[in-house]
Nucleic acid binder design. Sequence first.
DNA 1: CCAGCCGTGGCAACAACCTGCCGACGCCGC
DNA 2: GCGGCGTCGGCAGGTTGTTGCCACGGCTGG
Lengths: 229, 229
Amino acid sequence: MPSTARTTDGGVTVVRGEEEVFRRTAHLFADATSITCAANTLSSWGWTNGPRVIADGSPHDRRVPPRRRDARIRKVYRSGMLLDPSWPQRMATVLEHPGAEVRISTDEVNETIILDGRLAILAGDQRSGERSYSLITRRETVHGISALFEAAWRSATDLDVYDAGAAEIRRLAPQVLDLLGRGVKDEAAARELGLGVRTYRRRVAELMAALGADSRFQAGVRARELGLV
Amino acid sequence: MPSTARTTDGGVTVVRGEEEVFRRTAHLFADATSITCAANTLSSWGWTNGPRVIADGSPHDRRVPPRRRDARIRKVYRSGMLLDPSWPQRMATVLEHPGAEVRISTDEVNETIILDGRLAILAGDQRSGERSYSLITRRETVHGISALFEAAWRSATDLDVYDAGAAEIRRLAPQVLDLLGRGVKDEAAARELGLGVRTYRRRVAELMAALGADSRFQAGVRARELGLV
DNA sequence: CCAGCCGTGGCAACAACCTGCCGACGCCGC
DNA sequence: GCGGCGTCGGCAGGTTGTTGCCACGGCTGG
């Protein structure tokens, strides 16, 4: 068995590493008329959004797969991602495409790509370095996954709407996260930022909302997951 | 320039990826009489503690470098690591060596290895996948690093001492972390575990102590760093 | 059996955190 | 200017988290 393909049966192929996913599916992106995509972190599906940044000298340079200009592209991102400093740049790349729609979800989304309702790619867990991915072509399964995606899509809010309210928090997020991460008490943290305690807490609350967290502990976990601390 | 070595000047070599560190230094472990090591996570310096577990089929199998049996081995670990389920197994491997001493630090420690006071290996940040490492041979620098390590060593507590108090919390840690990570309130969490609220909070406090965290947010970050959630 | 030890969990006091409310201030657009 | 709008931050009242204290019960070695 080659080391890249792990399992194949009933229209489901499990592979390890996103490079392998890229190799196997890049050609399908070319004439897909509908691409839907859900991601929890900025680095997910990196190769779908432009040339991947690789340490110099690496032989793994890849480019975004070609796409029909009339393709309908829909993406759902987890809200916390807006807090990442490189988010605006990323969005610029995504929105280059004419028909791209982006929505933001407060809940966690399973990392997914669906092409034309015919192929679904599900990200699995990360073991021994490389993440596993399921490539699914079985029609019934793909339909089921599409339905789940549609539900997530409906419950997510449009980027423009969401973005409007999140400008201020984004400016302060790095500092607030730093202070929280250092275990600084609200009192001191507010002073350090030259804010009132009330406002500082407001910022923290907004942050938690953006991270979809119910408690500060959870916020810590999420922030770390997203690499914000 | 080969893609592995990044910088070389004044007795400092910066390389990327622990495999490269292994290749360059494995022979030095063989006749070192003093090995000191500080680690923040269980996966750090994985190759120094036995064959690395790699996905089947990978060509990267490596073995622990041979060592003199009379070598003095000292290791400092961050306390949170004891919470990892695979900690006991890992310790077994480490303690196989006759003169191994292990201490636990509450504070964060910079990941470091020092061989015989002649070579220091410092882990750097993680960029584009592979972590960077500095291999330092310049005598003055290594001495300075040794001094820092000695300070950390003195302030750390012996494993046996530390371990004695941490038996109970280790049993519950996974469940408590899960509850905290789900944002469950203490009240409900205690009920779910069949504990009094007071005791649950005690567990959380112990957990935070083990993680060296001052706030729950910080604990969340640390827990995530250590891959406990 | 008893004394000592330890984990438990209720109570309480306090610190920290969360939020609704509202007045103050600055910034427009009219 | 002036009314609307939005942000700020104090205050208050509530919830949640943190800790010391102590009584209770189980266990153990004498």
